[in-house]
Design a protein around this nucleic acid. Structure first.
Length: 503
RNA sequence: GGCCGCGUACCCAAGUGGUUCAAGGGGACGGAUUGCAAAUCCGUUAUUCGUCGGUUCGAAUCCGACCGCGGCCUCCA
């Protein structure tokens, strides 16, 4: 099986072969820390977390870098508005972001470099571009000269002459040679705080937006590396400019593969910072708020339920549907533990290890079918990380296991062999889910308000109810069930007794 | 205006030339099971893939036009 990845540069899926055999370098554009991160900021990290998990599974050693932009106009403005220092604001929001990613089980990032800590290297890079004639200085600013870069625009398919033809003079700025020229270095303004003033050969100032990614990726991954990721909205100008300033200095290809994820939408609109109507929604869509409201696994599941290049529409109804879908797996896991005594979250025999001993026809069929599904899962992942299709396969496997449980009447007769196979199939299911960063640990079954006493009381009510049912006093039984239902407790009468769960 | 993406059932969402390609989830409706439920299982729910043309023996899938939605072209994951 071979992995193919869609490359924005070529606009098609390409066979993946790393530069150095067995090793993969990935750079993902992280956030500018000037406002709390929203759900859209989690999409890239979750997807690349899966990319890393999958590549690791395939035997690659992955080095994944996500940058933090902590020097920027917007941070300066926001910090001034809040009356805190730029550094203070940036660190606070960075910590929030890191915490949110940890909550989402995005724990596989290898380095999170800060722009502010690579300024000397950026200056070196900029000086190199000046020396090579690709950049010029104007009153303490340094601009990249897009006119000197023959293939400028190859990523976003734009030609600077056409793109900026007839643009207003305003874009020309002070002393720009071409309207499309972008700042590599911005001279400090007197009003700006000291913690964003860095000394440079061109006077005090700070780096432009794009240069940090070129420099930090080169330092941490090499001048040419395997995969560069980010949101679709970064293709132009950010990534285009990264390519220009990197390749103009090194004469080497920058990133081999560009992966761009679709943007998260709310009411079909991009979650944007400037839209007034969006401001209110933004509050709700902040990662910290969402993580307080929903299990993180649900957010991850929702993100992975559509292909990474498609936009995700975020709404209560999509969340709700995702939650109900996820419950299918949770119920299966509970069922398996109850019927087989095997904990799906703990290491156990997977079904592929039982191929030889599956002599019983239905067990044999289960093994065969689950293995076929496993293949489909891997094929989906190999096809540009099609997590949506992969999740579809997980549902199919869950169906196979439930069907097998029904067929072998496991609820009634707990025969040895069906228990073993059902448990093993579930271990395979969990194993595949974990390639997506799912099913890492048992889902929370209880609410914060639950305690031992309420559990005992429910058990007591169940006993009373079953006594009543045995004497066919169903009104009493139903009363208890309905009243518990109103409290959010769902009773389930199974062949082996009555269980309960929260709605 | 230029560039890019999208438009698949009631909703979400895979599929980008042909035998299982119309996955999967939610919802709804039948059936099995249950005292009744819940859960689970079985079945039904798109002869059709925005519209109209074209290419082809054959298209949701390729080409063209059009309609609709969105993104970028200024900061943005």
């Amino acid at each position: 099986m071979t992995l193919r990845i869609h490359n924005t540069l070529s606009k098609q899926k390409e066979l993946f072969n790393p530069i150095v055999a067995g090793r993969v370098g990935i750079y993902l554009c992280g956030p500018t820390v000037y406002k709390p991160a929203h759900i859209g900021h989690a999409v890239g990290p979750v997807i690349f977390d899966v990319v890393k998990r999958y590549l690791t599974y395939k035997g690659f050693q992955v080095n994944w870098v996500v940058n933090i932009t902590d020097v920027d106009d917007k941070i300066i403005t926001e910090a001034a508005a809040r009356g805190v220092s730029v550094t203070q604001l940036a660190r606070e929001l960075e910590q929030q972001y890191v915490d949110a990613l940890a909550a989402l089980d995005v724990t596989s990032i290898d380095a999170m470099p800060r722009a502010s800590e690579y300024v000397p290297q950026m200056i070196e890079h900029i000086q190199g571009l000046i020396d090579r004639g690709y950049a010029y200085v104007v009153d303490g600013d340094v601009y990249f000269d897009v006119g000197k870069d023959d293939d400028y625009g190859k990523l976003s398919n734009r030609k600077p002459e056409e793109q900026f033809a007839g643009t207003r003079d305003g874009l020309l700025g002070k002393g720009k040679r071409n309207p499309g020229d972008f700042a590599l270095w911005k001279a400090a303004k007197p009003s700006e705080p000291d913690d964003v003033k860095f000394p440079s050969p061109w006077g005090p100032g700070r780096p432009g937006w794009h240069i940090e990614c070129s420099v930090m990726s080169a330092r941490l991954l090499g001048e040419t590396f395997d995969i560069h990721g980010g949101g679709m909205d970064l293709i132009f100008p950010h990534h285009e400019n990264e390519i220009a300033q990197s390749e103009s200095l090194t004469d080497k290809p920058f990133a081999r593969i560009w992966m761009h994820n679709g943007l998260t939408r709310f009411n079909t609109k991009k979650i944007s910072k400037s839209d007034a109507e969006m401001q209110k929604a933004m509050q709700e869509l902040q990662l910290t708020n969402l993580l307080a409201k929903y299990p993180s696994e649900l957010l991850r599941f929702l993100i992975l339920s559509s292909h990474y290049r498609a936009p995700i529409d975020f709404s209560d109804s999509t969340i709700d549907a995702a939650r109900k879908g996820l419950d299918t797996f949770y119920r299966l896991f509970e069922r398996i533990e109850r019927l087989t005594g095997s904990n799906p979250y703990e290491a156990g025999v997977r079904i592929e290890q039982l191929f030889e001993v599956a002599t019983d026809p239905s067990a044999h069929a289960l093994v065969k079918d689950v293995l076929a599904e496993q293949l489909r899962f891997l094929e989906a992942m190999d096809d540009d990380f099609n997590t949506a299709a992969a999740i579809g396969v997980l549902f199919d496997i869950a169906g196979l296991i439930n069907r097998y449980i029904e067929q072998s009447r496991l609820e009634i007769r707990r025969s040895e062999q069906p228990r073993t196979f059902a448990a093993a199939a579930t271990h395979t299911l969990v194993f595949l889910g974990r390639l997506l960063g799912m099913f890492l640990r048992p889902a929370k079954k209880q609410s914060p308000g639950d305690d031992a006493l309420s559990g005992d009381l429910i058990a007591l009510l169940i006993d009373v109810r079953n006594q009543a049912r045995q004497t066919r006093q169903f009104e009493i039984g139903d009363l208890i069930r309905n009243r518990l239902d109103a409290l959010g407790i769902l009773l389930e009468d199974r062949p082996d007794g009555t269980g309960w769960r929260r709605k």
